[in-house]
Nucleic acid binder design. Structure first.
Lengths: 331, 331
DNA sequence: CTGTTAGCGCGTTCAA
DNA sequence: TTGAACGCGCTAACAG
C-alpha cells in the first residue's frame, strides 16, 4: 500500500480511503489511485483489515455433510440451502466458511467467532445435543439456527411451522379420501417430531383416533429409509397413503413401493416435506410441504447480520405451503 | 495475550511459543500457560496470526452450487465431493472457504490468494471458459482443478480417466449382449466429451461403426436430462441400452423410461458415471463408473498442500473401475 | 479533502 | 530457556 501511495503521490491513508470507497476523498484522487492500484495488481490484505477492524465479513455455516466412511448420504435439502446461503451472503459481501464439526464437539479447541475467523454462525439443524447448543449460544449470541421452534429458547431459530406442515400434509391426504395414512420419519430429530405432532393433530382435530401401528420411524438417510419402507411393507399393516417426513424419505418410499409392484399414487399416495429442487424432477413428481428454502436461507442471513450489528431480532416461523404435484394422486 | 502473560508471570513471547507448541519452552511453563489460557477462555486471534505468518491455513473451494433463481439443481456429485474435501482439509487443520463465483468472473475484483484469504484454491470442474482458467492459474499456481485431462496444461488436474471410463462402460454393455447402445450426455463439458470419446472408442476397437443417431446430448441438470430422455423416446430411434454420462442423468433416464412403461434393465440397460452415494440407494441400483470420489478428494487436498509448500506435483489420472449393480441387467 | 500518528494481536528475530 | 523489540498491512482518530 505504501508503494501505491508513493506512485500516486499521496499518503497511505488516502489510498486506504480511496480503496474502501470513503466519501472523504476527492473524485480525481480516487480515480487516480484506483487506476494505479489496478495496474499494479494490488489488493488490500484482508487479514490486516480484519485485524484492524475487528470484523471479518465472514459467516461460518455448520452443516451435516456426507460421511463417506459410513456411506452416509447428506440430505439434498441441506445442499439446496447451501446454494441459497452462498447467494445471500455473497450479495451482502460476506464470505462463507463451511464446517462439519460443531464448535462444542470434543477435540475442537475454539470457535470461529472467538478466534476472529467469522462474525457469526449459521447452524443447520438443532441436532441431537440441544443442551450443548444452548450453552454455546449463551456465550456467543451471533448465531442463527435452522430448525424447529421448540420453546422459548434464547437463540434465534428460523424454520417452517412443522406442526402446521404435518397437519396440512395429512389433511390433504384425508381430503383425497385416503383412509389408512401412515407416517414415516425419525422423531429423534426435533423437526421430525414436530411434523409427527402435526400428523397426530390432523386426526384428533377431525375426530379420528390415531392408529399407532401406522407410525413408522425412519432415519434421514436414503438407504436406511428404503430399509424402513421395506419393513413397512413386510409388517403386513395395510395403508393407502404415507406422509413422509422429508422428500428424501418420500423418494425412497416410492422406489421401494414401485419395486414391490405397487403404483404411486394409485395404490399408495405420498406426500413429502421440504420441496427440494429435485422433488419436481422425480417421477412421479412429489407433492410436498414447502420449506421455502430460498426464503428461509435469505431470512437466516438477514437476521444474523442484524444481530451482529447489535439489533434485536426474533425467532421466525415461516408459514407452510403445500405444493401439490403427482405423488399424492390429486386430480 | 498480554493478560495471559501477566497471569502466568511470563512474557508475551513465551505465551505465544507455548500456545503454538514451540519446543523452545519449558514443559512446566507451557502447562501453566495452557491452563491459564484455557481458564481465561483465551484463543489466539487468527487474523493477527495470519498477518504475521503470511499464511491462512484456509483453502477456497470453488463449486457450482444450485442456482435457485433458475431452479437449477446442482449435481449431487459435487456435494459428495464437498463432504470428502471437508474431511480431508479438516484432518490437515485447514479451513474451507466455499465459493460459487470464479475469481475471473466479471464483477469479481480480487481473488482469495492475492488478498490473503486462502493459501490455495480447489476448482471443481474446468467449466466452459478454459482460457480464463489457464490465465488465472498462470498467475496463481496454488490451484488444483478437478476435471478431464485435456492436454499438457500448466495447472494441476485430478480426475478419472474419462476416456477409459467411457470405453469400460460401453464394452460392459456390449458384453451383456446389448446391440443398440445409446450415449446420453452434454459434450460441452470437457469431461463428458472425453467420456463420449471412450464410447466411440469402444465401438471402433471392436470393429463396429458408431451409429451417430444413437448419440444424444443432455445437460447435467436433472429436469433437462428428463426432457432429453423423453426426446430420445420420441425420436423413434430404437435402443436397448444407454451409457449415461453421469449418475444424475442415469436416474433421470430410468425415471423417464419407467414412466413410459419400459422396464430397466430388461428393456433398456443403463450404466451411469460417478458412483455418487445415492447410486446404490436408487431403484434399480446403478451400475456405474466410479469416480473414486473419496480418493479423488483426498488426492486434490494432498497435491494442493504440497504445491503450496513449493514442491512440484503432477496432474493425476485416477484409474477407473466399473461398479456393477442392477441397472445394467448383469446376472 | 488530506497527512500524521498510533496501534490492532501476534510471531519472530536477537540478545541474554 | 526466556524477554525485549520490532513489524506484518491496514484503518481510525486527530489535526490541519
Amino acid at each position: 500500500m505504501f508503494e501505491i501511495a508513493q506512485l500516486a503521490g499521496v499518503s497511505e491513508s488516502t489510498v486506504s480511503r480511496a480503496l474502501s470507497g470513503s466519501p472523504l476523498v476527492n473524485e480525481n484522487t480516487r480515480n487516480r489511485i484506483l487506476k494505479i492500484a489496478r495496474s499494479a495488481n494490488y489488493t488490500v490484505n484482508i487479514n490486516a483489515r480484519n485485524l484492524r477492524q475487528k470484523r471479518t465479513r465472514t459467516i461460518e455455516v455448520l452443516i451435516p455433510l456426507a460421511e463417506y466412511g459410513r456411506q452416509h448420504m447428506s440430505d439434498p435439502f441441506y445442499l439446496d440451502m447451501l446454494g441459497v446461503l452462498a447467494d445471500a451472503l455473497s450479495e451482502r459481501h460476506y464470505d462463507m466458511l463451511l464446517t462439519k464439526r460443531a464448535p462444542w464437539a470434543k477435540g475442537v479447541e475454539t470457535n470461529s467467532i472467538q478466534c476472529g475467523r467469522a462474525d457469526g454462525i449459521i447452524i443447520m439443524g438443532q441436532g441431537q445435543d440441544l443442551e450443548a447448543l444452548r450453552n454455546f449460544t449463551d456465550l456467543y449470541p451471533q448465531v442463527v439456527v435452522w430448525g424447529g421452534h421448540l420453546r422459548e429458547d434464547d437463540y434465534i431459530v428460523v424454520g417452517t411451522d412443522n406442526v402446521a406442515g404435518g397437519k396440512l400434509a395429512t389433511e390433504h391426504l384425508m381430503k383425497l379420501g385416503r383412509k389408512r395414512i401412515a407416517f414415516l420419519g425419525d422423531p429423534a430429530e426435533p423437526e421430525i417430531a414436530l411434523r409427527q405432532q402435526g400428523y397426530r393433530k390432523a386426526f384428533l382435530d377431525n375426530g379420528i383416533a390415531v392408529d399407532e401401528s401406522l407410525i413408522f420411524s425412519a432415519p434421514f438417510d436414503a438407504r436406511e429409509a428404503r430399509a424402513s419402507a421395506e419393513k413397512m411393507l413386510q409388517s403386513g399393516v395395510s395403508f393407502d397413503a404415507i406422509f413422509c417426513a422429508s422428500d428424501v424419505i418420500a423418494m425412497s418410499a416410492i422406489t421401494t413401493l414401485r419395486n414391490a409392484g405397487l403404483d404411486v399414487p394409485r395404490d399408495v399416495a405420498i406426500v413429502g416435506y421440504d420441496d427440494i429442487l429435485i422433488a419436481n424432477s422425480f417421477g412421479p413428481s412429489l407433492t410436498t410441504v414447502s420449506q421455502r428454502i430460498q426464503e428461509g436461507g435469505k431470512t437466516m442471513v438477514e437476521l444474523l447480520l442484524q444481530r451482529i450489528e447489535g439489533k434485536s431480532v426474533d425467532t421466525t416461523l415461516l408459514p407452510v405451503e403445500l405444493v401439490v404435484r403427482e405423488s399424492c394422486g390429486a386430480p
